[in-house]
């Protein structure tokens, strides 16, 4: 499995390390031409305004909509979740607009409110250590979206078919189970394309 990490800005190396621990090959992606080689893509944490602007500038919006249209999995963490969302609170223009959900940016407050906690995630057998940094929240999801995790009643991880999103940063710990979950989504998608 070749899993790309969008490397326009943000925590790229950590995701690549987690992907490789999960048994797949991690690729840093800076150009749209690289997408053809991939079985799945991670949009990492970083600043969503910066990542969104650079995605527009380099043609990643259309290219990733086409990538997703082929059923290839995309996983957005923190800023990546914001980039995937169809609706952003505060009337901000959405970026990829692929996932049927409304997202609030900086939903917990400023950096001093950033935290880590143990979190139950559907599909992972025991709690994950989840790191939330100026994190967004999923305020509402459409009926085709499966809620994977909540924190204090708010949605912090969700899946819509081949699209996966988390408010927190699974790449900042040594626990690669969520990455393994995503790699298995990519394996599943490859099987379906062949069938």
């Amino acid at each position: 499995m070749n899993i790309g990490v969008l490397a326009l800005q943000g925590a790229v190396a950590e995701h690549i390390q987690s992907i490789e621990r999960a048994g797949a090959k991690g690729v840093s992606v800076k150009k749209v031409q690289q997408l053809d080689e991939l079985d799945g893509l991670i949009i990492p944490g970083g600043e969503s305004t910066t990542i969104g602007k650079l995605m527009r500038k380099y043609g990643f919006i259309e290219a990733l909509r086409a990538f997703s249209g082929k059923g290839k999995p995309i996983f957005g963490t923190c800023a990546g979740l914001i980039v995937l969302a169809d609706r952003l609170e505060g009337g901000e223009e959405p970026h990829l607009g692929l996932m049927n959900m409304t997202v609030a940016r900086n939903a917990f407050g400023r950096q001093r409110e950033s935290f880590e906690t143990d979190l139950d995630v559907k599909g992972i057998d025991t709690p994950l250590r989840a790191v939330f940094i100026r994190a967004p929240l999923i305020k509402e999801v459409g009926s085709n979206v499966d809620v994977l995790s909540t924190y204090k009643g708010e949605i912090v991880a969700a899946r819509q078919g081949h699209l996966l999103a988390s408010s927190f940063h699974p790449e900042l710990t040594d626990d690669y189970r969520l990455h393994a979950y995503f790699v298995s989504m990519a394996e599943e998608a490859v099987k379906q394309t062949k069938a």
Binding site: L8, Q9, A11, V12, E14, G46, E47, V131, I133, H169
Partner: peptide
């Protein structure tokens, strides 16, 4: 982690 999110920026 907050600084990691600034990387490449």
């Amino acid at each position: 982690g907050m600084a990691e999110m600034q990387k490449g920026g």
